[in-house]
């Protein structure tokens, strides 16, 4: 169907530049749908892929993908029926136990996730949990630090997709395990902030099974003719609610079977 207010390539590029600069300068901006209220999901993804291209042109490597809005509660809250995705750039990776500089971020929050390292390329449509499990090298516990580039972390779905689904940092920790060694649905997660338990959950909070999140990602990528390459690292979405952090906070996430992920905000 024709969209009379379709964004031009120039406008897509401008929005991409604005949002990438907001990320690089840690400076929040008004949400892009304030200026482009009719921005479609497809245009929002055009912006995200344009940001990705800007980074790649500068020599940044894209190491994987992330899924967002993967709990039914969050989808209902946003009035959508499917999650959103974003990319992970090489410099988003923070070592286990590492320090994350608040000055590089705007208003970060942390979420506990189960992440997948893919051994084989996956393509959709029709990708299912069985394909995902067969194509996975290992799973590993990981914590995502999300940071919306929008004022007060307030956005609608096109805005957050354009903003790379709030992707900004991630920490891989714990112990990698083969997918058939544990039941990801019932794998428990306990998040502690400065020694106190703040959030808990189990893997099923992510679309019933984190592997289902990878399958959904692959099928969403297929809508743009893209695949999930071998060697991709995939963050499947938050098992816990996102927890706001500030300088001085120490986060420890303890996983059943998979070990711990730790980091400090400075």
């Amino acid at each position: 169907m024709a969209n009379p207010k379709k964004m031009t390539e120039q406008q897509i590029a401008e929005v991409a530049e604005l949002l990438e600069n907001a990320e690089l300068n840690a400076q929040d901006v008004v949400k892009v749908t304030d200026k482009y209220p009719d921005m479609s999901f497809s245009e929002a993804l055009d912006v995200q892929w344009a940001i990705r291209a800007r980074k790649e042109a500068r020599g940044t490597r894209i190491v994987g993908m992330k899924m967002g809005l993967t709990s039914w509660a969050k989808m209902a809250q946003m009035g959508v029926d499917k999650p959103c995705y974003g990319f992970l750039a090489d410099y988003f990776s923070v070592p286990q136990g590492g320090e994350i500089k608040m000055e590089e971020l705007i208003h970060p929050k942390v979420e506990a996730e189960i992440a997948f390292m893919m051994d084989k390329e996956l393509s959709g449509p029709g990708c299912h949990v069985g394909d995902v499990l067969a194509a996975t090298d290992f799973i590993v516990p990981a914590v995502e630090i999300i940071d919306s580039r929008y004022e007060n972390f307030k956005f609608d779905l096109p805005s957050v997709i354009a903003d790379n689904s709030s992707s900004c940092r991630f920490v891989i920790g714990g112990r990698p395990l083969p997918v058939d060694s544990i039941d990801m649905r019932t794998t428990g997660v306990v998040m502690e902030k400065n020694g106190a338990v703040v959030e808990l959950g189990a893997g099923a909070a992510v679309l019933g099974n984190p592997a289902a999140s990878v399958a959904m990602l692959v099928n969403m990528l297929a809508e743009r003719g893209e695949v999930l390459p071998a060697g991709s690292f995939v963050m499947t979405g938050g098992i816990t609610a996102a927890v706001a952090v500030e300088a001085g906070d120490s986060i420890v996430v303890r996983y059943q079977h998979l070990g711990d992920v730790t980091m400090k905000f400075v």
Binding site: R185, L200, Y255
Partner: peptide, 16 residues
């Protein structure tokens, strides 16, 4: 750390 998944009438209700 053991995880809990509770389902009501076939839908996931809560995890802990």
């Amino acid at each position: 750390t053991c995880g809990m998944v509770v389902e009501k009438n076939g839908a996931i209700l809560s995890t802990g």
